[in-house]
């Protein structure tokens, strides 16, 4: 996968003349918008949908959550379930199972407006193996340390689009640089990807490979583009990622977020001293 290095930033870094500093701006405001984070995986569940609201950009209070919505997930095998509110804006299934090959649809009713989305659980890509190798530093980009290489196998019937999530000792790497979304249209059967940051001896690294459909993949591409946006100088003008959820009742009040229906595979490795 070709990733666009922010080359110009690198150049500026090398020039050493540029500086970054925090600024406070008088930003415009907007009515809070509904944020949906829905996940269905190929497991027994519970599958969850979290509902919250957007806030002013510089707000320091915790985001408001939505507690009074009706959330329903159905599959194309005739199963349907209203999710149970479990607190903190999270609604969870109790019985609905995630089965590869089935399609799932989401319906949300809140404040008189109706939101829908759907997705299919694609056959999954396989985490074949993980390996670790020690590399010397390549300043200023890479530090010395143990670098993880991930080998994935993509069966012919599996999805074309993936997202990789990395956990170190159970904490998720979730910086914008950790949004790994290899596009397997260029990768017919195997993925080999080296993580761009090093680990230390004793770390337990878990890797999850999510199989996405096109819409969800595009969402992440747009999300990454937004997270790296420079305001429109070298990057395109910033815009919200296209959500796969639609407000059917009021087209002028579209929600943010996504309904991700994705099977996943996982692999774990403990970083050890390299045998000489």
């Amino acid at each position: 996968m070709i990733r666009f290095l922010p080359i110009y930033l690198l150049f500026i870094l090398m020039l050493g003349a540029s500086c970054r500093e925090l600024v406070t701006l008088d930003l415009p405001q907007q009515e809070p918008r509904l944020i949906v984070e829905g996940h269905v995986t190929d497991t027994q569940g519970p599958h969850t949908v979290k509902l919250s609201l957007s806030q002013d950009y510089f707000s320091t209070t915790p985001a408001q959550v939505v507690e009074d919505a009706v959330v329903r997930i159905s599959d194309d095998a005739g199963n349907s379930e209203v999710l149970l509110y479990t607190g903190s804006g999270v609604y969870a299934t109790q019985a609905l199972q995630g089965v590869v090959g089935r399609s799932y649809s989401l319906e949300i009713d809140w404040r008189g407006e109706h939101y829908t989305s759907s997705g299919t659980l694609m056959p999954k890509g396989i985490v074949d193996s993980l390996s670790v190798a020690y590399y010397e530093a390549i300043p200023p980009v890479f530090d010395a340390g143990y670098y993880l290489t991930f080998y994935g196998k993509i069966p012919p019937e599996a999805a074309d689009f993936y997202r990789v999530q990395v956990y170190e000792n159970d904490s998720l790497y979730n910086d914008r640089t950790d949004l790994l979304i290899p596009d397997s249209r260029f990768v017919p059967s195997t993925i080999v990807e080296q993580l761009q940051y090093p680990f230390e001896i004793g770390d337990t690294v878990r890797l999850e490979l999510y199989s996405l459909d096109r819409n969800m993949y595009d969402y992440y591409v747009e999300l990454r583009s937004l997270l790296f946006n420079d305001g429109g100088l070298f990057s395109p003008p910033p815009r919200n990622p296209t959500s796969n959820i639609i407000n059917v009742s009021n087209p002028d009040n579209q929600p943010l977020g996504f309904f991700q229906v994705a099977s996943f595979d996982t692999g774990t490795i403990i970083i050890e001293e390299e045998p000489e």
């Binding site: 930003l27 405001q29 907007q30 918008r33 919250s52 950009y57 707000s59 985001a63 996504f258």
Partner: peptide, 13 residues
């Protein structure tokens, strides 16, 4: 420029 009219915490981002 386009300025943000708000923020959203989505999937940890």
């Amino acid at each position: 420029v386009s300025l943000p009219v708000g923020k959203a915490n989505i999937d940890g981002f």
